[in-house]
Amino acid sequence: MTEKTGSLRHDYLRHDKKFPHVWCPGCGNGIVLGSLIRAIARLGLQKDELVLAAGIGCSGRMPVYVDFNTLHATHGRALTFATGIKLARPALTVIIVMGDGDATAIGGNHFIHAARRNLDLTAIIINNQIYGMTGGQYSPTTPYGSFAATAAWGHIEHAFPIAELAATAGASYVARGTVYHAAMLDDLLAGGIARKGFSVIEVMSNCHTQYGRRNQMNDAITMLRYFKEQAVAVDRAAGMSAAEMAGRFTIGVLADVEKPNFTEEYQKIRDRARQQ
């Protein structure tokens, strides 16, 4: 269920930071931000114990709006900074927001290793299938056959399935949502933040300005409708054939496993070392 965002705005957003934000009208990033503060409010987390770190790109501007401990790191490297923060202060709840290019192109290596290492971090990857801020160049999630500023003749590479990649690499919690399914997104984010270990929530989001415009989806509503039609709940997808799933994607919790996480394992090493 969706908490009322109105009062949460005052509770969790920075009062000294001037709005409007940098995002285009209708951008999905605002929906993700709303979902994030609702999830945090639901979990009862205090602002002082929260860190929101981001890389570079449109998603990278999110930390500046929230009244947490915030970090705007270098392109693709937010997870590495977050690793240092979490290890230095394990009591902090560390959330990282990245874009698809940020997390899986320039930061791809950090991403799979963070999943493998299983530090207690929550990574939100806003997947708009394009490099928005730099002007619509193709990213690792731009679909085959679509158009981008650097794919003027049609895209000939194949897209990363981010959530599946994270699950294979070893993340404890993996989910995919969309900005259309905002209420579900609240649940997925709360689930990921609550889960000890590395959590990944991939959020299919609209960049009608850069992606939609070049691919016959000129406005936010067209793109949201696209997400509504193409998304298939995980349990329903299990009963569908590959042909039925072609061009569509699953949403919901894809993986949720309990396994040793780095933070707790390292504390055991410290305890052993101190006894010797």
Binding site: T80, F81, A82, L87, A88, H110
Partner: peptide
């Protein structure tokens, strides 16, 4: 870490947290 880029990022993060 997985490379030196990450190593540098991690030490900055830890230092920001006061270590």
């Amino acid at each position: 870490m997985e490379d030196e880029i990450a190593s540098m990022g991690a030490i900055i993060g830890a230092s920001l947290a006061g270590v």
